[in-house]
Computed example of a mutant assay.
Amino acid sequence: MPDSFDYIIIGGGLAGLQLALRFAEDPYFNNKQFAIIDPSDKTENDKTWCFWEKGKGNWESIIYKSWESGRFLTSSKYLKFQLEPYKYKMIRSEDFYSLAKDRLQSLNNFHFIKDSISEIYETTMIAHGAKQYQATHFFDSRINSSYLKDKKSSLLYQHFKGWIIETDSNIFDPDQFTMMDYRLKHNNSTSFTYMLPLSRTKALIEFTFFTPYLTEESVYDEMLMSYIKEYLGVDQFHISETEIGVIPMTDFPFHKDNTPSITKIGTAGSWVKGSTGYSFKHTEKKTAKIVANIKAGKEPSYELLNSRFRWYDAIFLDVLTRNNEMGEEIFSKFYSKNTTKNILKYLDEETSLSEDLKIMFSLFDVEFIKSFFRKGM
C-alpha cells in the first residue's frame, strides 16, 4: 500500500464513494492513484437514500423500491400526486456501499484505507495515529463545525427516527408513498410523518423534524407509536429495523473552505440541499462536474454551486428558523399550488427564473418578504 497518491478522498460515504466511482468510470484517470480513507468499514445499513429521476439511472441494480405516485396530508388537505415522468426511488446504504466497494476494489489504482484523519497541510495529510499520506489533491468530507456558532447563517436540523414495521394483515398501499403527513405534529413545530410502503405488510415509517433544536429519542418513539396506532389503525406489529439521523439544513458557506489543494465534498462542501436535506442526486451532479473540471484544467470546485438556488434556500431557512410553526402552511402551499413536475424540477435546481417566480408567488407571505431583505443575494 503506497503512502503517496494523486488523489485522496477523505470519507467513504455517499459523496466519497460516488466521486470515486466517477473517477473509476473515466479512462482519463486510469493512470492515477486514489486512496479512500475512512475509519469505518461501511458494512451496515446506516441510511436510506431516496431521490426522483426520469427513466433509468446509474443505480438501477440497487434500487430497493420505487413509486410513481405519492401523497401529501394535513389536517385539512389530502393531495395525491403522480410523479410522471419521474419515479421516486429508494436505495439502502448497505447496497450502495457494497456495489461501490466491489467495483473499486477490482481496480489496481484504488485503495481503501481504514484510518481517521486529523489535519491536512498543503500536500500532506496526518492521521490521528501520526501516519502521513501525501497527495496532489484532497477531497475532504469532514465538516467544519464552526457553522454551529455562525450567527449570520440560518440553521435547522432535519432529525428523525424511523422504524421498518411488519404487520400480519395487509395495511399499506405499496404503490403510493407519503411525502409528508402533518396530521400529527409535536408541539408547535415543523414536524411530520414520512412513509415508504415496501409491501402490503411492510413499511418504513419516519417521524421527522425541521427545527432549530434537537429532541430526546423518546419523543420520536412516542410520535411513531401514536401515528401507527391512531392514523394507521395498527395495534400489532413487529419492528425489524431502526434508523435515526440528523442532517444540518443551513446556508452556511461550507464550500468557502475549498483551496487549490482541498475540495470539500458532501455536507462539508454545501452539497446537501439546504431547504430539503436531499443529497443523492445533487451529489451525482457535483461529482460529474468535478471530473469535468479536472479534465478541463480547472480547479475541481469551479462553479460547483448555484448561487441563485442557495439564495432561495437561505430565504426559506430564515423563515422557518424564525417561524418554525409555519412549516405545514408553507409546504401545503408548495404542493397544492404547483405541479409535481415543476416542484421536482425546482428542487433539482433546473427551473428557469420565470418558473422560480411562479413558485415564489405561490408561497407568498409577509415573512418571506422579511427574509428576502434579511438574506440579500
Results as ranks from 00 to 15, higher is better:
residue 173 D to F: 00
residue 159 H to K: 01
residue 173 D to P: 01
residue 159 H to V: 08
residue 167 T to W: 06
residue 156 L to D: 10
residue 170 N to E: 15
residue 158 Q to D: 04
residue 162 G to H: 07
residue 150 D to T: 03
residue 141 S to A: 11
residue 162 G to D: 04
residue 160 F to W: 13
residue 149 K to H: 14
residue 159 H to F: 05
residue 164 I to P: 03
residue 161 K to T: 11
residue 159 H to A: 06
residue 174 P to G: 03
residue 147 Y to C: 04
residue 148 L to M: 14
residue 143 I to T: 15
residue 166 E to A: 05
residue 165 I to C: 04
residue 144 N to E: 15
residue 169 S to A: 10
residue 164 I to F: 10
residue 171 I to T: 12
residue 170 N to P: 00
residue 164 I to G: 00
residue 153 S to I: 10
residue 162 G to W: 08
residue 146 S to I: 10
residue 159 H to I: 08
residue 166 E to N: 12
residue 152 K to V: 04
residue 160 F to R: 00
residue 161 K to D: 09
residue 147 Y to N: 06
residue 158 Q to K: 06
residue 160 F to K: 01
residue 141 S to D: 12
residue 172 F to M: 03
residue 171 I to L: 03
residue 152 K to L: 13
residue 170 N to K: 11
residue 146 S to P: 06
residue 170 N to W: 01
residue 150 D to I: 03
residue 144 N to Q: 07
residue 150 D to P: 05
residue 172 F to C: 00
residue 173 D to V: 02
residue 164 I to V: 15
residue 169 S to M: 11
residue 173 D to M: 00
residue 148 L to A: 06
residue 148 L to N: 12
residue 151 K to M: 05
residue 142 R to T: 13
residue 144 N to H: 13
residue 161 K to N: 08
residue 157 Y to G: 01
residue 153 S to G: 02
residue 153 S to P: 09
residue 146 S to G: 00
residue 170 N to A: 14
